[in-house]
Design a protein around this nucleic acid. Structure first.
Lengths: 204, 204
DNA sequence: GTCTATATGCTGATAGAC
DNA sequence: GTCTATCAGCATATAGAC
């Protein structure tokens, strides 16, 4: 009964697509690249994913998306002040982006922009992933004292700034966009907390 | 001496690529699509652009990029209060995005994200376009009373939020991301102006 | 479930007549 | 400067033995 050390062919295929999409997006990668990277034959891909490239890309987007949003609390929890926490998250992202040699930080955003008008199935999957991000993010901000109505707006602004700064930073090879974006979102946190405080004091 | 009503073959080719990239990005479009859309034969494309697809895409990015940044003052000039102006620009963008049926609002951001690790020539062109945006944007903010050092940070945050919200909005088919991003950048303007005012009052 | 061999169509690019 | 015909290679996907 020899232990299976390697992961399943299916899992290796999904990981390979996720990694390839992170670097090259969706349109530019080929199924040959995928099977080569996963060290699997062509037939296995179409055995596990009968609809081929689109289907395996969808699965990879869901997997990566779920993993990515877990970073948010991980980066922000250590900081008591929410404004500091937001800036720390962006500054950490900036550091990672620079240290990695300006790699693509988020395949979901990249692929979403690329295929929104061409691959309706993948667009819907990307939308599901983003809706999950927004829900989880809003819940996190509520838990940290932001009013329910402002939380959704805040997480939308934060994710937008994050995704956009990823692209600018990677293109310009500069950590500036992410740091600047972090300051803007921190300013928004400040504004939202001030609003909440006003409401609170009017109640008290 | 019959007037030439149509544009030159060269111009039609560049326009066709710009429009196709706006919708589908770079990797997904083909030179056949380009020549078909421009109603030009294959040979003409390679006559005017010997390096082919990459070269014509580069030209289209430069042309579109230069056109896009002109919208910023156009949208913001009518509003005296800079915070209002910023929100108006984002709200206008949100309206356009929704009314257009969630079309791609900025080919430069889309293409930049897609090819940053695969097409070094195009990445550098996209970087040049963005550096031009940043310079012009920073100058605009300075002209409207923002301190020089804050202006650059502000325009970086604004462009990041704009590009990211384009992607989220198009994927989610929602105007919310752009509106939320606009409020965050307005908060940043508020913060930056307050800072400046503090400095000013210490001088006065 | 795994793997090889292959089908069919399309890719970017070129040659060369006009 | 325009246009047609065509190249060599690669794309996704499939068939069918094991």
């Amino acid at each position: 009964m020899s232990e299976q050390l390697s992961t399943s062919t299916r899992d290796r295929l999904v990981s390979a697509v996720a990694e390839l999409m992170r670097v090259h997006g969706y349109s530019a990668i080929t199924v040959k690249q995928i099977t080569a990277a996963a060290q699997a034959p062509m037939g296995s891909l179409y055995h596990h994913f009968p609809q081929g490239k689109v289907q395996i890309a969808a699965e990879a987007l869901r997997t990566s998306g779920a993993a990515y949003i877990q970073l948010l609390p991980l980066l922000m929890d250590p900081h008591e002040d929410l404004r500091v926490a937001v800036r720390a998250a962006f500054d950490d992202a900036a550091r990672v982006q620079e240290e990695s040699g300006w790699m693509n930080m988020c395949p979901v955003g990249t692929v979403a922009g690329e295929i929104a008008d061409s691959e309706p199935v993948l667009r819907e999957v990307a939308a599901e992933v983003m809706r999950d991000w927004i829900d989880r993010g809003a819940t996190y901000f509520v838990d940290r004292g932001v009013e329910e109505s402002s939380s959704r707006e805040l997480v939308l602004a934060m994710l937008s700034a994050l995704e956009g700064a990823f692209v600018l930073g990677r293109t310009l090879r500069s950590a500036e966009p992410l740091r600047a974006a972090g300051r803007a979102i921190a300013a928004q946190v400040e504004a939202v907390l001030a609003e909440g405080a006003t409401v609170d004091s009017s109640i008290t």
